[in-house]
C-alpha cells in the first residue's frame, strides 16, 4: 500500500469516528439542557423569556463542540493537508 491509499483509509475512518462521537455527546448534553430548561419553564412560566435566551446561548455553545468535530472531519475528507502534500509530490 502506498502512502496516499494509507492516508485516504485513515482519513475516512477517522472522519467517520470524529463526526460520530462528536455528535453523540453534544446530543446527550443538549437533551439534558433542554429537559431542565423545559422543567424550569413549567415551574416558572414568568421567567420563560430569560430561560429561553439563556437556553439558546447555552445550546449554541454545546452545539459548537459538535460543529468543531464536523469541521475537522470535513477538513479530513475535502481539504486533507497530508493528502495534498503527497499528491503534490
Amino acid at each position: 500500500m502506498d502512502n496516499t491509499t494509507l492516508i485516504a483509509i485513515v482519513s475516512i475512518i477517522t472522519a467517520g469516528f470524529t463526526t460520530g462521537i462528536g455528535c453523540m455527546f453534544p446530543a446527550l448534553s443538549e437533551g439534558k439542557a433542554v429537559a431542565s430548561a423545559l422543567q424550569s419553564v413549567a415551574q416558572q412560566p414568568d421567567a420563560a423569556p430569560t430561560i429561553t435566551r439563556t437556553l439558546f446561548v447555552g445550546l449554541a455553545m454545546i452545539e459548537s463542540t459538535a460543529i468543531y468535530c464536523f469541521v475537522v472531519s470535513m477538513i479530513l475528507i475535502f481539504a486533507n493537508p497530508f493528502w495534498n502534500h503527497f499528491i503534490a509530490q
Binding site: A60, E63, S64, I67, Y68, F70, V71, M74
Partner: peptide
C-alpha cells in the same frame, strides 16, 4: 476562534 468556527461550521454544514 470559537465565534469564527461556530458561525462558519453551522452555515457551511447547512449548505453541505
Amino acid at each position: 476562534l470559537a465565534l469564527t468556527i461556530r458561525l462558519f461550521g453551522n452555515i457551511m454544514s447547512g449548505g453541505l
